[in-house]
């Protein structure tokens, strides 16, 4: 990262710490939502942006994580064990969902994950004995940390922010490890990766499992943040929204999900000036954004500041070029 990038991150970090002291509870709630969705989007960026496996089921993993934490804490578990279970559960299910990716790629994989998302929604809605069905689960308790309650809006925001920093740092470290390079090799040219002796099978499953884990952990924070979860919140819309965050932010770029989630959370809120028409305007802005910078906001920034670097190298996994393979 160059000096400009470092400066931007530093300023953003300061803003993330100072802002909650300037905002009313609503503002704090919004940036908390940004933090939680950013974690989920980082996970999807890992699966999609780095490893090139198209998943349209990230919302389902947020849901599974949210339900795991809500149900376990309601059964008397403390938050942290519940949170860890949420992550492990999503790791396991994500690993299983990775198996189709070994057979099919790209748009076909997208369809399988899309179907999976709807199946999860149906289970959450229909298995009332477990999930309380359409009635949802209200009042998930916020955790205690070192004896301190995070019940207040600001305290919980900082708790979530801490989690984001931890998880983002772990992801950063992993992407620089041989694993991360293997993921990128998988995206760029799976056949070459295989011929170089990379266990593509294991890395494909791992990409799914790790991305899903982050989704589940985000869900584990979503439940105590909103303090009400229902199956509808984790339908395809959530997955589409997360996909939008990754692509709009800049897929395959570490800070893409941060920017994408910011846009997806704040832009509709900001557009409410237009009252009844705010969703129309929001949808239009997303379309305009995509038409003018299909590589996302960060792709655009890169293009503006580093015109020499070919932008295609780090671009979204281009399905079109390989649409005819497999």
């Amino acid at each position: 990262m160059n000096r400009f990038g470092l400066l931007t991150v530093a300023v953003a970090a300061v803003a993330a710490i100072v802002l909650p002291f300037l905002l009313k509870p609503f503002g704090i709630y919004l940036i908390s939502m940004w933090v939680v969705l950013t974690i989920a989007a980082i996970g999807l960026n890992l699966t999609l942006g780095y490893a090139g496996q198209v998943s349209m089921a990230q919302g389902a993993f947020v849901g599974i994580g949210a339900y795991a934490v809500a149900l376990l804490t309601a059964a008397g578990w403390p938050f942290f064990p519940a949170f860890v279970i949420a992550g492990l559960l999503c790791f396991a299910i994500g690993w299983l969902l990775g198996y189709p990716a070994l057979r099919v790629q790209h748009h076909y994989l997208a369809f399988v994950t899309l179907a999976f998302n709807t199946l999860v929604f149906l289970v959450l809605r229909n298995e009332e004995w477990l999930t309380n069905g359409t009635y949802g689960i209200a009042g998930t308790e916020r955790p205690h940390l070192f004896g301190l309650s995070t019940d207040g809006a600001r305290a919980f925001y900082f708790f979530c922010l801490g989690m984001l920093v931890l998880l983002a740092a772990a992801t950063w470290w992993m992407l620089r490890s041989p694993w991360g390079r293997a993921f990128v090799a998988l995206r760029e040219n799976p056949i070459r990766a295989l011929s170089l002796g990379l266990d593509t099978r294991r890395y494909t499953l791992m990409a799914f499992a790790l991305g899903s884990t982050l989704g589940g952990l985000a869900g584990g924070l979503y439940a105590p943040l909103v303090q009400f979860i229902e199956p509808n919140s984790f339908s395809l819309n959530m997955s589409f929204n997360l996909l939008l965050m990754v692509i709009v932010g800049g897929s395959g770029r570490f800070f893409g999900p941060f920017v994408g989630a910011l846009i997806a959370v704040l832009l509709p809120e900001w557009m409410r000036i237009a009252e009844g028409y705010y969703l129309i305007i929001y949808a239009m802005l997303v379309m305009i954004l995509m038409v003018f910078c299909p590589t996302g906001v960060l792709g655009l920034v890169e293009k503006l500041f580093k015109p020499k670097k070919p932008p295609a190298a780090a671009a979204a996994p281009t399905l079109k070029a390989e649409a005819t393979s497999r």
């Binding site: 803003a15 503002g27 940036i31 910011l262 846009i263 704040l266 832009l267 809120e269 900001w270 409410r272």
Partner: peptide
Amino acid sequence: LVAAGISL
């Protein structure tokens, strides 16, 4: 963005 979102 943040400012505008909140000032509303």
